[in-house]
Write a protein that binds this DNA or RNA. Structure first.
Ligand code: FES
Ligand code: FES
Lengths: 150, 150
DNA sequence: TTTAATCTTGACAAAATCGGTCGGGTATAA
DNA sequence: TTATACCCGACCGATTTTGTCAAGATTAAA
């Protein structure tokens, strides 16, 4: 399993924020309930996302979190990268790729690089707005599902 | 880091077998030395690959391992999948994808699916023979590198 | 003002996974 | 017979994962 619960739960939670974007804040409690997550675990996750500047919060009664940007300006990859760290299959690819002086001979490097590129292409080509769009389409054509395992 | 040492070391070790394919067997000891790996750890790795039918072994003095098939018939993805388990980003995609009855509503499913597909496209499109070819080309054009970190 | 809601922070911890090691086997060529 | 090599399962320390717990700070609403 490549993506840990932090990334998976986080994405589901942020999706709720995206759906409700423009309608004020949502509390952790309500999101945890909707997506069936632990409140305290979700606190950790949102705290990280806030630290990365993706969310803004307001304290006190009636407060909560909301997206710092429009859903169409937040890539799924950004959310996942914040929560999971850099999604690189090996040390030699990613932001610190420069330190690999072995591209010359290491025949596996090209493999890690291609995996990394493909992965990032996918997650940065989908935005939260895309997810909301998909959701709307699904809603109109399919019945409600129950248990979530992702 | 998506790929653990089992997968990365294993691929490097199998690459040695691919280079020497057709020239009999190689001992774990010699491969461990060439690729600077622990012998005992490599035993575990090869044992798994043998169990999956990718390697064949001969015991006793002068024995060792060799590939069960021609390098061009072994995909990198096969090696990685045996060593890492199924490379799926979430439970709902992969071989047991059928059990996810939530494709309807779960908007993250399409993301996991696309990651999974992209990943597998990459690793199953490269064979051990491709790696050897790359290696030959690199050898003739570049100097020998030293430290390996993958 | 008081209260309740809500975010904030840091510590703690069980369980799983990772990255191996250890100690014995067994088969076989020399 | 002996050295070489594969075979196999148990074990083990460190780290990561997946949370829980407790206390506090801020603010809206009653
Ligand atoms: S050492 Fe950089 S990819 Fe192998
Ligand atoms: S429940 Fe199957 S992908 Fe979410």
């Amino acid at each position: 399993m490549i993506i840990s619960t932090k990334g998976r739960y986080g994405l589901r939670a942020v999706f709720e924020l995206a759906k409700a974007h423009g309608q004020g804040t949502m509390s952790i409690k309500s999101i945890a309930e909707m997506q069936d997550l632990s409140e305290q675990y979700l606190e950790q996750i949102f705290s990280k996302l806030k630290g990365a500047g993706l969310l803004v919060s307001t304290r006190g009664a009636g407060g909560g979190y909301k997206l710092a940007f429009d859903p169409k300006d937040i890539a799924v990859g950004k959310v996942l990268t914040v929560l999971e760290g850099e999604l690189a299959p090996a040390e030699c690819v990613g932001d610190d790729a420069a330190q690999c002086d072995n591209v010359a001979l290491c025949t596996t490097h090209v493999i890690w690089q291609r995996i990394y590129d493909g992965f990032n292409d996918v997650i940065y080509s989908i935005t939260l707005a895309d997810m909301v769009d998909d959701y709307q389409k699904m809603l109109s054509s399919k019945p409600q599902a129950k248990d979530v395992r992702c």
